[in-house]
Nucleic acid binder design. Sequence first.
DNA 1: CCATATAGGACCATTTTAGTCCTCTTTGCA
DNA 2: TGCAAAGAGGACTAAAATGGTCCTATATGG
Lengths: 158, 158
Amino acid sequence: MLKLSKMTDYAAVIMAQIARDPEQAHTASELAARVNLPQPTVGKTLKMLSRSGLLESRRGSHGGYVLSRSPAEITASDIIAAIEGPIGMTECSHADGDCELQNTCGVADNWQRVSQAIRTLLDCVTLAHLAQSNPLKLPVQLPIQSVTLPSTVASREH
Amino acid sequence: MLKLSKMTDYAAVIMAQIARDPEQAHTASELAARVNLPQPTVGKTLKMLSRSGLLESRRGSHGGYVLSRSPAEITASDIIAAIEGPIGMTECSHADGDCELQNTCGVADNWQRVSQAIRTLLDCVTLAHLAQSNPLKLPVQLPIQSVTLPSTVASREH
DNA sequence: CCATATAGGACCATTTTAGTCCTCTTTGCA
DNA sequence: TGCAAAGAGGACTAAAATGGTCCTATATGG
């Protein structure tokens, strides 16, 4: 389903929580309570986000997590990549050359372009967008017109 | 990684193969050979594609599979949905109301919009595009400008 | 009636995922 | 100086998803 993992989902929710009150540090247990998820899981998620540089952590008492950049500068891509690794629809989107089907595959290039388009889309969705309760308009119509349809095999009978 | 499952990957490759020679029926074993994948797996994939109405099958000798529509009318969305079910980034993208985190989540709406944008993107990639060896230009730049950035939380210090 | 196909599932092994827990380190403060 | 409150890191487990195979039934053409 091209779905995000639960962890990524959690990450987004947690990041949004923090983004709504970015001045102060948030602890794992505080966030867990707010977001209504078990503390250990939230803790784990925060560690991952912190290791990827999206959060900064302070240890010890009065410790916690803070955004390392402003919500407008953290993208959906960042969050997804932090939890799931590099974004790409197919195995061969990043790993280079280790696909033994390359000769017979014949669609790799195009999938990669599609991946790229999705990545770009996710790059322009920021945490600021996600965190806010309402709008966020994405150009769901635009792409359709601008695809160049080169028609080699295309539309033979329609 | 927002990745397609292997099966979906196979499905795309197989569909592309068929699209390149759409006039005649293709058997599972023939396609397996062409695409360099084990026959049972290809067979399974074809069955799924056929059940979802993307292929039409004829049984018996001289049987096989044919596209049920022209390559230009079969989209990447169709293929993905045939194997993985409805496209959506989060659980709650389709199932309605059964997420007990709804109140604390606060990002569901926006994720759904993003999902929708991706779906639209995949709707405009056709099998004809995938099947052809080269071009396929997607508007990877466009979306950026057209996102309306309503900035509530956004950009406080940059 | 036989050979060739698909249809539909059952089935299994492996991997991935989600989630917990334990131990160690850092830090603030009484 | 010692304790409590935090995060860091990683080991571990249970459950689910995934990929892949195989078997039986059914349809079709010659």
